[in-house]
Design a protein around this nucleic acid. Sequence first.
DNA 1: CGGGACGTTGACGGTCGTCAAAATTAGTGG
DNA 2: CCACTAATTTTGACGACCGTCAACGTCCCG
Lengths: 267, 267
Amino acid sequence: MFDQDEKVRTHLDVQTNVQSKTSSKLVSLNLQTIKVACSNCNLRELCMPLGLSSAELDRIDDMVASRRKIKRGSTLFRNGERFSNLYAIRTGFFKTCVASEDGRDQVTGFQMAGEIIGLDGIVNDNHTCDAVALEDAEVCVMPFDRIEDLSREVNALQRHVHKIMSREIVRENGVMLLLGSMRAEERLAAFLLNLVQRLHARGFSQSELVLRMTREEIGSYLGLKLETVSRTFSRFVEDGIVEVKQRHVRIIDTDALKDIVNPRSSH
Amino acid sequence: MFDQDEKVRTHLDVQTNVQSKTSSKLVSLNLQTIKVACSNCNLRELCMPLGLSSAELDRIDDMVASRRKIKRGSTLFRNGERFSNLYAIRTGFFKTCVASEDGRDQVTGFQMAGEIIGLDGIVNDNHTCDAVALEDAEVCVMPFDRIEDLSREVNALQRHVHKIMSREIVRENGVMLLLGSMRAEERLAAFLLNLVQRLHARGFSQSELVLRMTREEIGSYLGLKLETVSRTFSRFVEDGIVEVKQRHVRIIDTDALKDIVNPRSSH
DNA sequence: CGGGACGTTGACGGTCGTCAAAATTAGTGG
DNA sequence: CCACTAATTTTGACGACCGTCAACGTCCCG
């Protein structure tokens, strides 16, 4: 199915490791447990404001209290746990999900390196969703008190915090549009385009990706059953839009995907 | 259908006017255009932090630059417009909606007195949704720059802004759960319970409400077609759970509604 | 090599969308 | 205040899309 499977695999394996670049670089520069420091983190442009003075950068470094490793399958935080930190994802991949009292649950998002999670906990000082690592991960732990203290003094940080929360609101608006008014094909196409776009912003391929989540998790996020996700993938393959080999996906025809999401633009 | 239709109507008409209490009170205290002031606004506990010193309260008053009246059917802001203010709803009722490029649109929320809208605009300095008044409304205009300035100095305000944004994120998580995993009856039941709960928090009935939006708008919010909304209402009426007369709704059996949303808690 | 998690595919049924028509209400202008 | 038109709502018939149930296939990891 893939022309050169090995090549794809290796390429994709590199993709998965934003961190392999990061941490190995750091380790080679210094030794072992390097001082936690945003100022020399190469994800900085993703999770921190731009254009800080070096004095401000020094202060920002204090924001990260520690790092924490999360093994695949375990949770960073859980619904009901006390909120005290936001987390910046250094490496790895997460899902967040909420549950109704009767057990149904809903994946509310997938998060990757450079993204911030934990914002749900601010309102009631309690987390209202679970954050589960879909692969071994590492996060920067940022006590929210410190963030608030610092953002009173560093305007750019204050603005940045506001933007991050607003971005999440806008993202969720988009998901609501998807869940409320799109059909299965449109949902999956939008999902793939969104994932690949975010990966591309992190330096990866525009056309190849490795799904870190199961069909069931994709389905939950998209409001579909796993069988429907699987079938829709198969249809895309039949139509020559993508190639799928388990969790490895290669997008053959990006425009076709865009047309599916947005029928009008088929000029 | 309603035992005493007139009584219901008058009661409900009172409901619609959070402002009739508010503004008439102010007008009777002073005259005409009273100085914009949160400190003596009776919605303060809804949109402002609690436990401010009187010095802080004075400063908070500066946050509201002006008020603005919006006629039913017209927009407070629109997708693409430049963002510069948040708005606190004083009176009236809004919907916010996003649109995909091919014209489909999705209601992302309904907002009532004391709630804040405009948060979507912060990320890109542009609004990404429309806010439409569903009845004649009045809002407090709060320039976001001022909010940021003030919240650097008034800790309680800073915290409050964060909580408001987080609350919106959590709310949208709930809507995603609804859209992703509930059936029509469950969605409508959850919708009614949510509305009546928010109205109750504003001093209105726990069992009666007037819908400010059309069936189509309800449907858009819930990811259903208007016919399905109408049919589901009819089924609730058949089952004796609610009484419906156009947009007037009386909830007869709250527990039944809760059971529909959350089947597990049946008994 | 074997077990378990994950993914695919088929057959069938239910929920909800679509189309259509009629009823009721709201809004407008005379 | 009434008449008239537009908008909204209700209801029915039918069909499509997706969920359910089931069986089988594949991959991963000990």
